[in-house]
């Protein structure tokens, strides 16, 4: 009887320890759940996969450190996919505090694939005024970004010579933690017919399904699950893919704790 009652008063540190191990162990032993990639992620993958080598992909960093664990893995997976297909990348962002995260990922993956700055990828950085930036880039990217993030004029970068407007960009991939993605659809897609893929946190992504249905976006990557699917598709399983097991395990763990707590509580109550 006494043991049952103890279930009502498990020390919180024990809960913390079990939870920590639940997250850690699947990584160490690479335990993974069988998952079929979501159709909207597969769609995004195919859109990028069928681009001819040399096409330009624009990536927008519209999140910051708080959403990093969910969105950063998507960024890495997409970058790997693009560089492995010899696509060229232009990166920019609308969240000033996210810019450092974008550049870190870009340089990491570029090094991995031996890509050269200015020839294979360019980093534009941040300019204030979300909608104005998007609209003006439809007329001429140089009207917003005369220089790249390092202060080099765009015309002296080989890969930028023939890139002027959205017409020269095959696909735009927006990584979102707020409403900037809606602006991309509203301005770059509706006004300039830019092909867009959106990736974002599990909180913002559900709002985008209407865009997917109306074909305003051609792919959607939502939350850690979406990132895991993309990692799976590009055959580079990392944070997100192995993170899905702890994700599910912790949810179930919390429910088990709740049940144990209730059993203990009931036992206590009966004695009283």
């Amino acid at each position: 009887m006494k043991y049952i009652e103890k279930l009502a008063k498990i020390d919180r540190r024990i809960i913390y320890l079990i939870l920590f191990l639940t997250v850690l162990l699947p990584y160490l032993f690479k335990i993974s759940l069988p998952m079929k990639p979501l159709p909207e992620v597969v769609q995004a993958y195919r859109e990028i996969d069928r681009l001819p080598a040399g096409s330009v992909v624009m990536i927008s960093i519209d999140y910051d450190a708080a959403s990093m664990p969910e969105v950063q893995p998507m960024l890495y997976a997409i970058l790997r996919h693009c560089f492995s297909k010899d696509l060229k990348i232009i990166m920019l962002g609308h969240w000033p505090l996210g810019i450092p995260l974008g550049i870190a990922a870009l340089e990491d993956v570029a090094k991995e694939y031996g890509k050269k700055y200015g020839e294979d990828y360019v980093f534009l950085g941040y300019r204030p005024g979300v909608a104005a930036v998007m609209i003006n880039m439809g007329k001429e990217i140089r009207s917003v970004f005369r220089e790249d993030y390092w202060g080099t004029p765009l015309d002296s970068l080989p890969m930028m010579r023939n890139v002027h407007t959205y017409d020269d960009i095959a696909i735009l991939v927006g990584f979102e933690a707020g409403s900037t993605g809606d602006y991309w659809v509203q301005y770059a897609q509706a006004r300039y017919n830019q092909k867009i893929i959106l990736g974002g946190t599990a909180v913002v992504a559900p709002d985008w399904y209407p865009y997917l249905q109306s074909r305003q976006i051609v792919g959607l990557i939502g939350g850690l699950r979406g990132a895991a699917d993309y990692e799976n598709l590009v055959h580079h399983k990392a944070l997100a893919y192995y993170g899905m097991t702890p994700q599910a395990a912790v949810h179930i763990l919390i429910v088990i704790f709740i049940i144990l707590g209730n059993i203990g509580y009931l036992a206590l109550r009966r004695r009283k």
Partner: peptide, 18 residues
Amino acid sequence: TVMARISLLIGRVYFLIH
């Protein structure tokens, strides 16, 4: 909300071991 919070922890654990 649980899901988003677990993702945060996963991010930190991954930083440590990776």
